[in-house]
Amino acid sequence: MKAIKRRRLLLLAAVIGFAGSVAAKPLQGLTVLPAPRPVAPLAIADAQGRAAGLDTLAGKAVVLNLWASWCLPCLAELPALDRLAGGAAPDGVAVMAVSLDKGGAAAVDAAYGRLGIRHLPVRLDAKWEVAEALAAPTLPTTLLLDRRGREVARYVGAARWDGPEALVLLRALADGRALTPAMAPPPATLSGTPP
């Protein structure tokens, strides 16, 4: 009996140890905040190093995407974000994709060229401050900001940003209607989105 208890205790200890030391999979998908959260001014720069923060999009709802050229799922969703920026987005919705690449504008140009990105302007987190300020430890992370510049939801992982589900979500964002987890767009996959 004692031996059995001992074995159970060991099992328990092993379970606790494993759960405690292996980082849980990061949260993925759409998270709607309980209340809109103001976003502090962000040190976003354009290709020439000039300030090009969110104030340039005042009055619009914003899809604020954080990406890097070394992040494959980021590259998987950039074309859809580019189509949004090129006119597919509902009225009143702007798209900003901020690169966290240390290589700056050169790294962005290389990636944009490879992917055929035509509408997204070059936006850089030049000093590695934006990702930290927004507490985004994984990429891609996309914040949905209302017309007052407040974060109302964020999506972690790659999504089909120009699909019908995403357009419903973004229309609600532009209209100032409440977002719900059920409005989450489906994930984009590395091998391309299904037909």
């Binding site: 990061p26 993925q28 890097a68 070394w70 992040c71 494959l72 799922p73 980021c74 966290l100 240390k102 000093k127 590695w128 990702a131 930290e132 985004a136 430890p137 994984t138 990429l139 891609p140 972690v156 992982g157 790659a158 994930p187 590395l190």
Partner: peptide, 19 residues
């Protein structure tokens, strides 16, 4: 290095700390 779903930014943080 292969992150199919989401990629951690730990290496970028380390690079920024080196700077």
């Amino acid at each position: 290095t292969y992150c199919p779903d989401v990629c951690p930014t730990t290496l970028a943080t380390i690079a920024a700390a080196m700077d």
